[in-house]
Design a protein around this nucleic acid. Structure first.
Lengths: 343, 343
DNA sequence: TGTTAGCACTCAAAAGGGCCGAGTGCTAAT
DNA sequence: ATTAGCACTCGGCCCTTTTGAGTGCTAACA
C-alpha cells in the first residue's frame, strides 16, 4: 500500500490533534476540522489503512486512533523539514560568561523547563582531550600540602595531601618545577610507570609525596568520567496523564533521580551524534525502559577546547517537537556564540 | 480529664498500629492485638475520651481513629524516652575521610534513603568563621592567572582571571607574598576599603589584577551562602498513599526540586537547635505548607572548624520515629568521630 | 463503679447494572 | 472513489445496592 499525500495529511491531522488534546482522535473530528473536505467515512477508510501500515493504532476497539511510535517517527523525520517555523524567542535566558560553568548549566535547565513545560536535563561538559596544563604544590600548613591541578580547558581541581616529613618552601618549589617539567602536556594515558619511577628517583626522600600527587592527578582526571547531570522541571510530567497515571510517575521520577541511566543516554547521544546536532528518540527507541512512554530530544553543545556536553528534553510522545527543536537550536547557537567568540 | 496510664497505652497502640497499616484503626483491633485484655466497648469509651482530648481523630464518622498532630507530638516527646532501643546498625555506610566533601554528602543521603525508605536531604556545611588561610596566584598562560583561595576548614576555590598586562614569574611571586601578608587570617567582613586601597597602591601597575583577586575572594566566600542541598529517595513518598494520592505528590516533589524552602527549613534548624541535636517537626509545625502531611526529623552535624550542616529525613507523619532518630544519631556520631578525630 | 455484650446506626468503598456516546466496520447507493 | 446509513462495540458515567468496619448508646453484670 502506498502512503499518498492524502494519507499523509490525515496522519498529520491525527498527530496534531492528539498533541493538543491527548485524547484518541476519531474520524469525525478529522473530517470536520481539517481542510480536506472529506466525509468521516472516507477518513475512516484511510485511517484503517494507516493503522494497517502501523502509523496509528487504537487503544481499544471503538476508540479513536492515536499515533504509534512509527507515526511519530515519520512526523518528526519528514514533516518537520517542510515547515520552517518562526524561531523561538527564549528572551529570558541571558547567559553570562563566567567561570562557574556549573551555575550556567543549572540556569539553562531551569529556563528550559520553564519555557517548555517538559522535564529537562543537561550533562556537564566532558573533556575529550584531557591534558595536564599545570600542577602546583603549596604548603598550607606544617602537615598539609595543597595540590592544584589544571587541565587544558581550564578545568581546575584541588587536593589536600597530608604530609609527615618536614618540607621547606624551597623544596616545594623544586618539586613544582620537577612535576611540571615531566608531566606537563601529557594526557593521563601517557603517564606510565617508567615515568613515575623516574620522577620518584629525582624526588629523593620526597618520593612518597610525588606518588601521592600522581595518584591525585589520576584521580582528578579520571573522576571526570562520572559525568554530572543537572535536571529541572521533572515534576512537569504530572501535566501529562499518560506519563503520570497508574503510578508511572514514580518509576519515571526515580530514573531522573538516579541519573545513571540518563548519563548512559547522554553519552550515547554524544558518541553517536557527531554529525547531527539534534536527535529525537521516540518511545521504544529509548534505551531506558522506564521512558517507553516518553520522547526525548537531545542536542549537543560545544564550548570550544573540545568541551562537549548534552542537553535533553523529556516529555510525552505528543510533545511539541517543532518548538522543542527550535528552542534547543537557539540555545545551543547562543552557547556557541558566547563561549566560542571569546574563548 | 486525666491522661492516665491506660489511655496512654491505648494511644500508643493506636499510633503503633496506624504506623504499620496507614489505615484508621478501630476499637476491635486494639482490643484483640494489645495485651490490655479489654473488650472493644471499653476501648471505644477510652478512645472517645482520647478524641475529646485531641490526641486522635476520625477521618469521618464510623471510621476508626488516626493520631492527630498533638497525639504524635506526645508520642515523640514522651514515649521515645522510655524505650532505649537497640542502636540501629547502618553497617552499609562506610564513610571515608576524603577532601571531596560533596561526594560524602551524596553518599550519606543515598544510604539514608535506602535504609529508611523515606526522602532524605543534607545541607552542605556552612562555614561560620570563614577566614582566609591561603591565597596563591599562578601564571598558567600568557593571558591567564589562576587564583587559588583556601579558607580555614580547607575549603578551596579557584578562579581563572584573564590579564592583559605582561607578568613575569617574579612579579607573581611578589604579588603572592603581598596578598598573603595583608589578607591572611581575615574574615571577609574584615576586609575593608582602606585595606584594598593600600593593597592596590603597593601593587603598583598591577592594581587591576589585585582588584580582580579581591573580587574573587569576596565572591568565593560569599557564594557559600547559597547553601547546597542534596536530596535522595524523594520518590519514596510514593510508598505512602497519604502523601502521594490526589496529586499531592506533585506539589511535594516540586518542593524537593526547588530546594529553596528546604534551605530555609534547614537554616532554621541550624539556628534554633544548638542545644539539642535532633529535632522533630510534625505536620503543621513545619513552616512549609506543602509538607503539612509530613513529618521531618533533622539532625545537626559538625565537622570541626565550626563547619556545621543539617541532615533531614522527610516522611509521612506515621514514620518510624524511633528508628529514624536512632539512625540519625548513629550517623552524626560517626561523622563526628571520623572528622574530629583527625582534623 | 468499671466493664462488657448487644444492637441500631453510619458511611465509605466495592460491586453491579443500565445508559450514553464516540467511534468503528461494513454495505449499498451515488 | 466517495458517501450515507446502520448495526455493533465498549469505555465512562451515574445510580443503586451491598458489604463491612466501626461507632455510640444502653442495659446487664461483677
Amino acid at each position: 500500500m502506498e502512503l499518498d499525500d492524502r494519507k499523509l495529511k490525515i496522519l498529520q491531522a491525527v498527530i496534531r490533534n492528539y498533541m493538543e488534546t491527548g485524547e484518541p482522535v476519531g474520524s469525525r473530528t478529522i473530517s470536520k476540522y481539517s481542510d480536506l473536505n472529506l466525509s468521516s467515512a472516507t477518513i475512516r477508510n484511510e485511517m484503517s489503512d494507516l493503522e494497517e501500515m502501523g502509523y496509528i493504532l487504537q487503544p481499544h476497539t471503538s476508540a479513536g486512533r492515536i499515533p504509534s511510535d512509527k507515526g511519530y517517527r515519520l512526523y518528526v523525520d519528514r514533516m518537520m523539514e517542510e515547515k520552517d517555523r518562526e524561531v523561538s524567542e527564549l528572551k529570558e535566558l541571558m547567559i553570562e560568561r563566567t567561570d562557574k560553568m556549573e551555575r550556567v548549566l543549572k540556569q539553562v535547565v531551569k529556563v528550559l523547563a520553564a519555557n517548555t513545560n517538559y522535564a529537562t536535563m543537561v550533562s556537564a561538559p566532558v573533556y575529550h582531550r584531557n591534558k595536564l596544563k599545570f600542577i602546583q604544590l603549596s604548603k598550607v600548613s606544617s602537615t598539609q600540602i595543597l595540590a592544584v591541578i589544571m587541565t587544558e580547558g581550564n578545568l581546575v581541581r584541588n587536593k589536600v595531601i597530608p604530609v609527615t616529613e618536614e618540607l621547606d618552601q624551597e623544596t616545594v618549589l623544586k618539586l613544582n618545577i620537577l612535576l611540571n617539567s615531566v608531566l606537563n602536556g601529557l594526557a593521563i594515558e601517557e603517564i606510565n610507570l617508567a615515568m613515575i619511577k623516574n620522577l620518584k628517583e629525582q624526588a629523593g626522600i620526597h618520593s612518597g609525596l610525588v606518588a601521592d600527587v600522581v595518584d591525585a592527578v589520576a584521580e582528578v582526571i579520571h573522576s571526570e568520567e562520572e559525568v554530572e547531570i543537572y535536571t529541572s522541571g521533572t515534576t512537569n510530567i504530572f501535566r501529562y496523564p499518560e506519563l503520570s497515571e497508574n503510578g508511572k510517575a514514580s518509576e519515571l521520577l526515580s530514573t531522573f533521580e538516579e541519573k545513571q541511566e540518563l548519563t548512559d543516554l547522554m553519552n550515547r547521544t554524544l558518541e553517536g551524534g557527531r554529525d547531527q546536532n539534534i536527535q529525537v528518540y521516540i518511545g521504544q527507541e529509548l534505551p531506558v525502559q522506564a521512558m517507553k512512554d516518553c520522547s526525548v530530544v537531545t542536542a549537543t553543545y560545544e564550548l570550544g577546547d573540545g568541551l562537549r556536553g548534552t542537553i535533553g528534553i523529556v516529555g510525552p510522545k505528543r510533545m511539541d517537537y517543532e518548538n522543542v527543536v527550535n528552542t534547543l537550536k537557539t540555545l545551543t547557537d547562543q552557547l556557541d556564540e558566547i563561549y566560542n567568540r571569546k574563548g
